[in-house]
Lab assay of single mutants.
Amino acid sequence: NQASVVANQLIPINTALTLVAMRSEVVTPVGIPAEDIPRLVSMQVNRAVPLGTTLMPDMVKGYA
Rank of each mutant, 00 (worst) to 15 (best):
N1K: 10
N1P: 15
N1S: 15
Q2D: 09
Q2W: 13
Q2I: 11
A3H: 09
S4Y: 04
S4F: 03
S4Q: 01
V5F: 04
V5G: 02
V6P: 01
V6A: 00
V6C: 05
A7F: 03
A7R: 01
A7E: 01
N8D: 08
N8L: 05
Q9C: 11
Q9I: 12
Q9R: 14
L10N: 15
L10G: 09
L10P: 14
L10M: 13
I11L: 09
I11A: 02
I11Q: 01
P12R: 09
P12V: 06
P12M: 08
I13G: 09
N14T: 04
N14L: 07
T15N: 07
T15W: 13
A16W: 13
A16Y: 15
L17H: 01
L17M: 04
L17K: 00
T18A: 07
T18G: 05
T18F: 05
T18Y: 06
L19T: 06
L19F: 14
V20C: 12
V20I: 13
V20W: 15
V20F: 15
A21T: 08
A21H: 15
A21E: 04
A21V: 12
M22V: 06
M22L: 12
M22G: 01
R23S: 06
R23E: 03
R23C: 06
S24W: 09
S24P: 12
E25Q: 10
V26Y: 14
V26A: 07
V27T: 12
V27E: 02
T28Q: 11
T28K: 08
T28I: 11
P29I: 05
P29F: 05
V30Q: 12
V30D: 08
G31K: 03
G31C: 04
P33D: 05
P33V: 06
P33Q: 05
A34V: 07
A34W: 06
E35K: 11
E35D: 13
I37D: 03
P38I: 09
P38G: 10
R39I: 13
R39W: 11
L40T: 00
L40V: 04
V41W: 00
V41I: 12
M43I: 04
Q44T: 15
Q44A: 09
V45C: 05
V45D: 03
N46D: 07
N46K: 09
N46H: 06
N46M: 12
R47N: 05
R47S: 06
V49R: 02
L51R: 15
L51I: 14
G52K: 01
T53V: 12
T54W: 03
T54G: 01
L55S: 03
M56P: 03
P57F: 06
P57L: 04
P57A: 11
D58M: 10
M59A: 07
M59H: 07
M59E: 02
V60W: 00
V60K: 01
K61M: 13
K61W: 12
K61Q: 11
G62N: 13
G62W: 08
Y63W: 13
A64Q: 13
A64H: 15
A64E: 10
A64Y: 09
A64I: 13
